[in-house]
């Protein structure tokens, strides 16, 4: 049963299985285990980023294709839902239309970019994605009539997903309202998308992608039309990234360039996929969880640590909460140095 759900791709390490199980339980029960606006928000962000990073892993880890346009696809999905909800009213139909349109547009755009650049060399694709992504980011901030420009768009999601909607009293001290439902839409949506991608990477198609990553010359010589597979992987990855963006928009009820399109998010995705372990899918779970937690709580942790060592020279300055980015950088360098194959690669080696 579990094997079928995971498409036969078992964690292959008891520690990894344990960690993944723990993350799954924590995310599944986040509103009950960690009640609080900020904690549930962090959990939702982790869910969305797991899907986003997994879709990037499909491209980079399995296909060996470097893209800098992943946040663009993420943004297309988010803006799709935002615009649909703004113009069609706050219904579920608007969400469906927005998400579908976003995913379709992302796939079409990926198809066009891929067909033009992946024929030549994979490095060409990286450069073109960078250019297109920058152009789209500028476009979104300039077309303020449509996209709200730098301010972004605030919109209303269906009533059933808002805090004002109550469908019961309390369960274990947690208010049964639309915000809770909204979290579960994000959680279940992310879980389904992740399992779908796990399915894809373990399909015959996924194996061809690995072959192309390993040796595209030989993949072609055993009869696989490499450019088709690369383009297909790019489209699929773009569509899933857009759906992740849609989920994020539903959760935040806001979209803006900083939350979906910025280069910083692109770098976060790269860090997550490298820290977690490329070409493993599970690496996305570990990487996204670690990095989102670090981004949200490292500052607090350091504040506490700083106050503990008060009076000791130098240390309090080093551990000052404002230095958290420095420590995040140090953690990143250390993890790449000690786990060149990512956390998952290291755990699987035992």
């Amino acid at each position: 049963m579990i094997k079928a759900v995971l498409s036969g791709d078992m964690p292959r390490s008891s520690v990894l299985a344990l960690v993944l199980g723990l993350i799954l339980v924590c995310l599944a029960l986040a509103p009950f285990l960690f009640p609080g606006v900020r904690t549930v928000d962090t959990a939702a962000r982790i869910c969305v980023f797991i899907v986003l990073v997994a879709s990037y892993d499909l491209l980079l880890g399995y296909g060996g294709i470097v893209s800098f346009a992943h946040t663009m696809f993420f943004g297309i999905g988010a803006y799709g839902v935002a615009l649909a909800l703004t113009h069609m009213g706050r219904g579920f139909d608007a969400i469906l239309v927005g998400a579908a349109a976003g995913a379709l547009l992302a796939a079409v755009l990926a198809f066009v970019i891929g067909l033009f650049s992946l024929r030549v060399r994979a490095i060409f694709f990286a450069m073109i994605t960078l250019a297109v992504a920058s152009a789209v980011a500028v476009l979104v901030s300039q077309l303020s009539g449509l996209t709200g420009g730098e301010d972004g768009l605030t919109f209303k999601t269906p009533r059933a997903l808002g805090p004002a909607f109550k469908f019961g009293d309390e369960l274990f001290g947690v208010k049964l309202n639309g915000k809770l439902l909204s979290y579960y839409v994000v959680f279940i949506g992310s879980l389904v998308l992740f399992l779908l991608m796990l399915r894809v990477v373990n399909s015959p198609f996924g194996r061809v992608l690995q072959a192309i990553r390993e040796n595209d010359f030989r993949a072609e010589a055993i009869g696989y039309r490499v450019v088709y597979y690369r383009v297909a992987a790019t489209c699929l990855s773009a569509a899933v990234a857009a759906l992740a963006g849609s989920l994020y928009a539903i959760w935040l009820r806001y979209v803006g360039p900083d939350t979906t399109l910025s280069m910083e998010i692109m770098i976060d995705i790269l860090l997550m996929v490298v820290i977690g372990g490329m070409g493993t899918m599970y690496g996305a779970v570990i990487g996204a969880t670690l990095l989102v937690l670090a981004q949200n709580y490292l500052q607090n942790l350091m504040g506490v640590a700083g106050s503990l060592v008060e009076g000791v020279p130098v240390l309090p300055q080093l551990l000052d909460a404002d230095r958290w980015l420095l420590w995040l950088g140090v953690l990143f360098i250390l993890s790449v140095y000690f786990f060149p194959t990512g956390v998952v690669g290291r755990l699987r080696r035992g």
Partner: peptide
């Protein structure tokens, strides 16, 4: 297996599990 799979024309199969063939 990749060569056999190519010959069987299964490369674009995104759904089934490769190990189940």
């Amino acid at each position: 297996r990749l060569v056999v799979q190519s010959k069987a024309g299964q490369g674009m199969n995104l759904w089934s599990m490769a190990s189940r063939h």
